[in-house]
């Protein structure tokens, strides 16, 4: 039997009010141990107020070769940015 522990990705919320951010990965036999290991490996200096661990095999990632075509639909839609519209200064803050 292979005893290599599965790989987990670790996400940490650094402070109240901000999103969780990917900080790295680690090996652990189950979610509970992954959580404890994440605390020991990634929050030794109060780096977080909340931790998520996700087994790496459950993550679906976009492929690098998609880079162009996958994001292409948004390229032509410049009107999604507020700067697309010319509004006179007299209209005030908008």
């Amino acid at each position: 039997m292979s005893t290599e522990w599965p790989l987990w990705e670790v996400f940490i919320r650094g402070q109240h009010g901000i999103s969780h951010r990917h900080v790295g990965s680690l090996h652990a036999p189950d979610a509970e141990m992954a959580m404890k290991n994440a605390r020991d490996v990634y929050t030794r200096r109060n780096e977080g107020v909340s931790i998520w661990v996700v087994e790496a095999r459950h993550i679906t990632a976009s492929s690098p070769s998609d880079k162009g075509p996958f994001y292409e639909p948004s390229h032509s839609k410049v009107y999604r940015h507020p700067s697309f519209f010319d509004i006179p200064d007299e209209a005030g803050h908008m």
Binding site: G24, L26, H27, D40
Partner: peptide, 26 residues
């Protein structure tokens, strides 16, 4: 103790970085 524990952490960060290149920890 805290310093030596940090070094264990450094080893783990680096093993994880190496693993992204397709080699396993074992």
């Amino acid at each position: 103790l805290a310093k030596v524990q940090d070094e264990a952490g450094h080893g783990l960060y680096l093993y994880c970085a190496a693993e992204t290149l397709g080699v396993s920890r074992d």
